[in-house]
Deep mutational scan, measured.
Amino acid sequence: HHGSGALAALHADGPHAGLPVTRSDARVLIFNDWEERKRSEPWLRLDMSDKAIFRRYPHLR
C-alpha cells in the first residue's frame, strides 16, 4: 500500500489554513481522498498530475 498513512504538511493558519504546503503534500491528500472514494466509486481514476493539483489547490501554482 503505497501512500496510506502518509501525512501531508498543511498550512496551520492564514489564508491557506488546512491546505497542503507543497505539491508532494497535495499528492498525499489527493491519493488518500482517491483511496477513500474508490470504495464507493471503483471506476474513479487517480490523477496526481500537476494540472490536477493546480485545479484542486490553485494556491500551489
Results as ranks from 00 to 15, higher is better:
1 H>K: 12
1 H>Q: 11
1 H>A: 10
1 H>S: 12
1 H>P: 11
1 H>E: 11
1 H>N: 11
2 H>S: 12
2 H>I: 14
2 H>D: 08
2 H>E: 10
2 H>M: 12
2 H>Q: 11
3 G>Q: 15
3 G>Y: 14
3 G>A: 11
3 G>M: 14
3 G>V: 13
3 G>L: 14
3 G>S: 10
3 G>N: 12
3 G>W: 13
4 S>T: 13
4 S>V: 14
4 S>D: 12
4 S>A: 11
4 S>K: 15
5 G>W: 12
5 G>I: 12
5 G>A: 13
5 G>N: 10
5 G>M: 11
5 G>T: 14
5 G>S: 09
5 G>D: 08
5 G>Y: 09
6 A>R: 15
6 A>K: 14
6 A>T: 14
6 A>L: 15
6 A>H: 12
6 A>M: 14
6 A>C: 15
7 L>I: 14
7 L>M: 12
7 L>P: 10
7 L>A: 10
8 A>E: 04
8 A>Y: 11
8 A>P: 13
8 A>S: 05
8 A>D: 03
9 A>D: 08
9 A>G: 08
9 A>R: 14
9 A>E: 09
10 L>I: 08
10 L>R: 06
11 H>V: 05
11 H>K: 04
11 H>W: 13
11 H>Y: 13
11 H>R: 04
11 H>I: 07
11 H>F: 08
12 A>S: 12
12 A>Y: 07
12 A>V: 12
12 A>R: 10
12 A>C: 13
13 D>V: 08
13 D>S: 13
13 D>H: 09
13 D>Y: 08
14 G>D: 03
14 G>M: 03
14 G>Q: 03
14 G>E: 03
14 G>F: 03
14 G>A: 04
14 G>T: 03
15 P>G: 03
15 P>V: 08
15 P>L: 15
15 P>N: 08
15 P>C: 06
15 P>M: 06
16 H>A: 05
16 H>I: 09
16 H>T: 05
16 H>V: 04
16 H>W: 15
16 H>Q: 10
16 H>D: 07
17 A>K: 14
17 A>N: 06
17 A>H: 06
17 A>C: 08
17 A>Q: 10
17 A>S: 08
17 A>D: 04
18 G>H: 05
18 G>E: 04
18 G>F: 04
18 G>R: 04
18 G>I: 03
19 L>C: 08
19 L>E: 05
19 L>D: 08
19 L>R: 15
19 L>Y: 04
19 L>S: 02
19 L>K: 06
20 P>A: 01
20 P>V: 01
20 P>K: 01
20 P>S: 01
20 P>W: 01
20 P>N: 14
20 P>Y: 00
20 P>I: 15
21 V>Q: 07
21 V>P: 02
21 V>C: 15
21 V>F: 04
21 V>L: 13
21 V>Y: 05
22 T>R: 07
22 T>E: 04
22 T>I: 10
22 T>K: 06
22 T>L: 03
22 T>Q: 05
22 T>V: 09
22 T>N: 06
23 R>N: 09
23 R>I: 15
23 R>K: 15
23 R>M: 15
23 R>C: 14
23 R>D: 06
23 R>G: 04
24 S>M: 14
24 S>T: 09
24 S>L: 09
24 S>K: 13
24 S>W: 14
24 S>P: 04
24 S>Y: 13
24 S>I: 09
25 D>G: 05
25 D>C: 07
25 D>L: 02
25 D>T: 01
25 D>N: 02
26 A>D: 00
26 A>V: 01
26 A>F: 01
26 A>P: 00
26 A>N: 00
27 R>S: 04
27 R>P: 00
27 R>Y: 05
27 R>I: 06
27 R>V: 05
27 R>Q: 06
28 V>M: 09
28 V>E: 04
28 V>C: 11
29 L>D: 00
29 L>A: 05
29 L>V: 08
29 L>F: 04
30 I>W: 01
30 I>Q: 01
30 I>M: 08
30 I>P: 01
30 I>D: 00
30 I>R: 15
31 F>N: 02
31 F>P: 00
31 F>G: 01
31 F>R: 08
31 F>K: 10
32 N>F: 09
32 N>L: 14
32 N>H: 12
32 N>T: 09
32 N>D: 09
32 N>V: 09
32 N>K: 13
33 D>V: 05
34 W>C: 00
34 W>L: 01
34 W>Y: 11
34 W>T: 15
34 W>K: 00
35 E>P: 00
35 E>D: 15
35 E>R: 14
35 E>T: 14
36 E>S: 13
36 E>G: 07
36 E>T: 10
36 E>K: 11
36 E>D: 11
36 E>Y: 13
36 E>P: 01
37 R>Y: 15
37 R>F: 03
37 R>A: 07
37 R>D: 15
38 K>E: 02
38 K>Y: 15
38 K>D: 02
38 K>Q: 09
38 K>M: 08
39 R>P: 10
39 R>G: 09
39 R>L: 14
39 R>K: 14
40 S>A: 12
40 S>F: 10
40 S>P: 02
40 S>K: 11
41 E>V: 06
41 E>G: 02
41 E>C: 14
41 E>Y: 08
41 E>F: 08
41 E>I: 07
42 P>D: 03
42 P>V: 04
42 P>K: 06
42 P>L: 04
42 P>I: 04
42 P>F: 04
43 W>F: 09
43 W>I: 03
43 W>H: 10
43 W>L: 09
43 W>N: 13
44 L>N: 04
44 L>S: 11
44 L>A: 08
44 L>Q: 08
44 L>Y: 10
44 L>F: 10
45 R>V: 14
45 R>I: 13
45 R>Y: 06
45 R>D: 06
46 L>A: 02
46 L>Q: 01
46 L>H: 02
47 D>W: 03
47 D>A: 02
47 D>H: 03
47 D>G: 02
47 D>P: 01
47 D>S: 02
48 M>V: 11
48 M>H: 09
48 M>D: 05
48 M>L: 14
48 M>T: 10
48 M>P: 07
48 M>Q: 05
48 M>Y: 06
49 S>L: 02
49 S>K: 01
49 S>N: 02
49 S>R: 04
49 S>P: 00
49 S>I: 03
49 S>T: 07
49 S>F: 02
49 S>Q: 02
50 D>V: 09
50 D>S: 07
50 D>Y: 07
50 D>N: 11
51 K>V: 12
51 K>E: 15
51 K>T: 11
51 K>A: 13
51 K>L: 10
52 A>Y: 11
52 A>L: 05
52 A>D: 07
52 A>T: 15
52 A>V: 07
52 A>H: 06
52 A>C: 08
53 I>Y: 02
53 I>R: 01
53 I>P: 00
53 I>K: 15
54 F>N: 09
54 F>H: 07
54 F>D: 13
54 F>I: 08
54 F>L: 10
55 R>N: 12
55 R>F: 15
55 R>C: 09
55 R>P: 00
55 R>W: 07
55 R>M: 13
56 R>P: 00
56 R>F: 05
56 R>G: 01
56 R>K: 13
56 R>D: 03
57 Y>M: 00
57 Y>G: 01
57 Y>C: 01
57 Y>Q: 13
57 Y>D: 00
57 Y>E: 00
57 Y>P: 14
58 P>L: 02
58 P>G: 02
58 P>W: 02
58 P>K: 02
58 P>E: 02
58 P>T: 02
58 P>N: 03
59 H>L: 00
59 H>W: 03
59 H>I: 00
59 H>M: 01
60 L>F: 04
60 L>H: 00
60 L>S: 00
60 L>A: 00
61 R>S: 09
61 R>A: 10
61 R>E: 07
61 R>P: 05
61 R>Q: 09
61 R>W: 10
61 R>M: 12
61 R>Y: 10
61 R>D: 08
